[in-house]
Amino acid sequence: MSYLEIDRLTVRLKGGGTLLRAVSLQVAAGEVRGLVGESGAGKSMIGKAVLGILPRAAEVVSGRIVLDGVDLLTLPPAERRRRVGASCALIPQDPLTALNPSRRIGPQITDRLVDILRWNRGRAEGRARELLAEVHIPDPDRVMRCYPHELSGGMRQRILIASAFAAEPKLIVADEPTTALDVTVQKQILKLIKEMQLRHGTALLFVSHDLGVVSKVCQSLTVLYAGMVLEDAGIGDFFRAPRHPYSAALLAATPKYTDPTAGLIPVPEAVLAAVRAEVAAADRRAGHV
C-alpha cells in the first residue's frame, strides 16, 4: 500500500479559479516522485495541500489526502497538524527566507522534536548535532549557536535539509529546493538530498520544473498542466517514451544536461492548444457530474 495517496483532489481559489483539478497520485514508502510542470501548473499546491499550508485564499473543494491510511481532510485541525508535523517535513525553496532571522539555528532544528514529539532537550540537541554532521557541516556546535544571517545560502539549505530529516519523517516535500541557489551549489545540494533520502529511506515528493534534475533524483514522476495530471510514469519509461504529447514536448524543450549547446525549444503552440482543450473538456465533465 502506498504511504501517501491523493485521490481526486480539487482545490479552488475562494474568488473562483481552479488550482488543482481532481488530482490523483500515490507515493509509496521510500519512493522519490517528481512533480513536474510549468510555473502555475499546481505542482507546489499539491505539496502545500498535503502539509496543510495552502494559502488562505485557497480551499479544498473535494477529494481525499490519505496519509498512512488516514484521510487528513477528515481530521480536526489540531490533530491533523500534529500528525503531519510528526510524519512529514518540508524542504523549502529559498533558504534565505526560510530560517527565522531572530532565532538561533539550534532551536530552529530541535523545536519540533521538543515541542511536538516531546523529546528532552539534551536528546534533541544531540540529534541535531548528528544531523548537521550528516549534511557535512563542520563544527555543528558553533553553527547551532549562530543566527541565520551569519551563514551562507548553501549552508542554510544544508541546515534546512538536516532540520527536515530531524524527526525521521516518512515523507518529505522538497519544493524546488535548488532553484534559489547558485549553479555550483545546486549540484552539491541535490546530491545531498539524494544521499540523505537513501540513508533514511524517506519518501520524497520532489517539486521541480527541471526535468534534468528530476531524472537524476526521482524514480517516478507526475506531469501537471493547469492543475491537471497529464501523465504518471516511472522515470525510465518516461525518458524513453513519454505517453502524452505535452510531456514529449516538455522533454524536447529541456536542454540535455549532457549537451549544453542544445538550447531551448519552446513547447509548440499546437500541443499547448490541445492540452488546453483537454483541460476544458475535463472541466465540462466535472461540471456534469
Binding site: 502539509l51 496543510g52 500528525r83 503531519v84 523549502p92 525553496q93 527566507t97 515541542d115
Partner: peptide, 26 residues
C-alpha cells in the same frame, strides 16, 4: 507570509504559537 512562518506550520505548530514565536519577535 514569510517562508519561515510557513515552515513552522509544517512542523505541527498551531496558529497562536506561530504568531507568538515566529512572527512577533521579528
Amino acid at each position: 507570509h514569510l517562508d519561515y512562518v510557513t515552515l513552522s506550520r509544517t512542523k505541527g505548530y498551531g496558529e497562536t504559537h506561530v504568531i507568538l514565536r515566529e512572527a512577533l519577535p521579528n
